[in-house]
Design a protein around this nucleic acid. Structure first.
Lengths: 251, 251
DNA sequence: GACCTCCATTGCGCTATATGCAACGGCCAT
DNA sequence: ATGGCCGTTGCATATAGCGCAATGGAGGTC
């Protein structure tokens, strides 16, 4: 492991919650400020950080550029975009796209609700596996042993009264999701927010991603949200077709 | 300057154009693959990089997370969002938001056109100073000596027949933009694409950002685009008000 | 307008640290 | 079952990163 790389990345992450001075950063990683200066210089060269006025450093635009370039290069995201926009336009609710990678579920696209509500989500953010609809869909698509392994490695935290907090309960839920073809988050992550999610499939029928609708109870109650399931499934099917999926008759 | 940080960041940037194997990366920065392995480990710890299958490394989700968090924390972006969405919805054309920082103009938000056209732009991407409407607006807002310094430091490249390719011509254009209150890119960057941009102002009347409309000629001709200027200015004014700007009567 | 203070910056010498090498071991394919 | 390939690790070495202290510039105050 590389000490200076580690320190440099820690600096970058520290800068993510706002510009900082040299001394603040030095204190953060507990080294002499001349050391910080030199690390920042390397980061600056690559446009990961930039000076903000005389005394402050902030994240650089190279970071945004990199992140978006990588995001844009993902085929799923590009292919699925029209379906997401369409669903967002038709329903007016928040639409998310998420994938499973490296044992985590990550939002890779988001379309804001037309109602002015803010959700506790963001592109790039990881979604908890056991209390979000997208994660349920994605984990339910894994082979059973993998599912079990994941379920048992989770540290279940009860966000709301409805949160699933045990591996068996989670596995049962996944089973149901797999059979039903869509997932529900019944205010299990945030109070008064319901989500439904469906899988997006590729050429071989494998699950590439999940798309979801998130609706605050104030805007529409649970029954209302469940009535949107057909729309969601239709959008997910359209997205799947874009990704090369062809409906196979169950033999 | 820190050698290992430099190498690590070079790796990250290399991974931006797609997953790579250990050996490819080793070759890229010309070091022993064991060294690459160790650098990657540090990057992996911070979720900047992740393994993709057995033989490949790809960018990690920590990068997306970081980038979006920093982007979201920008007050301008958040405050201005409704005005951008509204303009996008009303016109159906591509809407950009850009700021000036560190001598560069960077797109920090984008709303896609309803017509299915792809633009050569992206959040995080730098906009050339001399042939984009947003950059003209932002540079025109700088004090004169700074404008001149910038104009003279530019390496003018003729993207299209209409591109401005000299400092004097650029400075004259900026002057006009400052007086007129909006900027025009008359197919100066991409052939057959016209853009108009207007400044977004803050409490003291200072220019915080620029918003623009981009329209392919196939969809609407130049005159048509110019007829959208009042809409653009209205949106920019609304955005400015959100940012604390209060119209001052010219004394 | 001059002085003073603060803080970024740099040159230097030392040590910790990153590096290359070579050997190991797991995995896949033949 | 065996061979080769590639990721991984232990070790010795040199180097690169580090802290220190001195420098210099900019801004603020009297």
């Amino acid at each position: 492991m590389s000490q200076s790389v580690d320190r440099a990345l820690t600096l970058v992450r520290a800068l993510a919650d706002g510009p900082k001075t040299l001394d603040q950063l030095a204190e953060r990683i507990d080294v002499h400020k001349s050391t910080v200066l030199r690390l920042l210089r390397s980061l600056e060269t690559h446009r990961f950080v930039q000076r903000d006025g005389v005394h402050y450093y902030r994240l650089g635009t190279g970071l945004f550029d990199l992140a978006h370039r990588a995001l844009e290069d993902r085929d799923v995201r590009r292919l699925v975009e029209p379906a997401l926009r369409e669903l967002n336009a038709a329903t007016g609710h928040t639409v998310h796209l998420a994938t499973f990678e490296g044992g985590e579920v990550v939002y890779i696209d988001k379309y804001e609700s037309r109602h002015n509500v803010r959700m506790y989500s963001r592109i790039g953010k990881r979604a908890p596996l056991y209390c979000t609809a997208v994660a349920k869909v994605l984990v339910a698509a894994l082979p059973e042993p993998e599912r079990r392994r994941l379920a048992e490695s989770i540290d279940y935290v009860g966000f709301t009264g409805a949160t699933i907090t045990s591996a068996p309960a989670y596995l049962a839920e996944l089973q149901q999701v797999a059979e039903r073809g869509y997932a529900l988050d019944n205010a299990e992550h945030e109070d008064f927010i319901h989500c439904i999610a469906a899988p997006i499939r590729g050429t071989g029928g494998e699950v590439l991603a999940a798309m979801s609708l998130s609706v605050p109870e104030l805007v529409l109650d649970l029954d209302g949200v469940l009535r949107l399931v057909p729309d969601l499934l239709a959008a997910a099917r359209a997205a799947s077709v874009e990704c090369g999926w062809t409906a196979q008759p169950p033999e």
